[in-house]
Computed example of a mutant assay.
Amino acid sequence: MRYLDCHLGNLIDALAVCQNEDAVQFALKCLATNAGCTHYSYVELRPAGHRVCSTYPVDWQERYIEQNYITLDPTVIQAGRTMRPVPWSYADKHRYDDKTRLFFEEARKFGIASGIILPIRAGFGTTVFLSLATEREATNKIAVRDRAYAATAVAFVHSSFMRLSKTVLGANDVPLSPRELHCAAWAAMGKTKAETGSMLGLSEKTVRFYLERVREKLNATNVTHAVRIGTMRNLF
């Protein structure tokens, strides 16, 4: 096994001083290079949509989305189920069924033959995956000794993207209170006012008040419009 732990410390240090998203992406490229990999992929799976930042070939990214491979990819499925790092290699394809073996064959043609995927749970139903991959069929897989440390590193990546995205999109210009943000975030996930109130310990009337405040601050025509604006601006 080739252990990733020492490189994760360097990643955390780099992220602590990042001032823009380009710097975060550069830190991830350095992580991949130091780990002996050629690609990285950062993915947020949200109930209301996905966010992807990746150096995988564009044709492969488009193919992956077009074929909905996220429902077939055994590394994503296992990592999402166990919330543990999953080392993988094309050399292990014999363990899977024919359809999954064809998936590995196709990925290999795009220069993706082995790697590791690191998952975490984030807020409001979001799951985050950080993957490293190389074109080599690794018999000496990448692994981590300290799963908690790996999760911390992925959380740093996630928080960096969230913080810097909000800066770019002007989120700080909209002074939403924590309660307003919570109510709007649950509304974005399709929760009713009663359901949101139950989760936050508030009355339905109070939730309605907070959502109306969000609507006013975002200059929206209604709450649905406000949620749409907030989601587009990455406010919650």
Rank of each mutant, 00 (worst) to 15 (best):
S114T: 07
S114W: 04
S114V: 06
G115L: 02
I116H: 04
I117H: 01
L118G: 02
L118S: 01
I120Q: 07
I120R: 06
I120M: 10
G123N: 13
F124Y: 14
G125N: 04
G125T: 03
G125F: 03
T127P: 01
V128Y: 04
V128N: 04
V128T: 06
F129W: 09
F129R: 04
S131Y: 00
S131F: 00
A133T: 00
A133L: 01
E135G: 05
E135C: 05
E135D: 12
R136C: 05
E137F: 08
A138Q: 12
N140R: 14
I142V: 14
I142L: 15
A143I: 13
A143K: 11
A143H: 09
V144W: 04
R145T: 08
D146M: 10
D146T: 02
R147Q: 13
R147W: 11
R147A: 13
Y149L: 15
A150D: 06
A151G: 10
A151Q: 13
T152W: 10
T152P: 03
A153I: 07
V154R: 04
A155P: 03
H158A: 06
H158N: 08
H158P: 02
S159I: 10
S160P: 06
F161W: 05
F161K: 03
F161E: 04
F161N: 01
M162Y: 10
M162Q: 14
M162C: 13
R163Q: 12
L164C: 11
L164E: 08
S165W: 14
S165K: 15
S165F: 15
S165C: 15
S165E: 15
K166L: 09
K166P: 00
T167F: 14
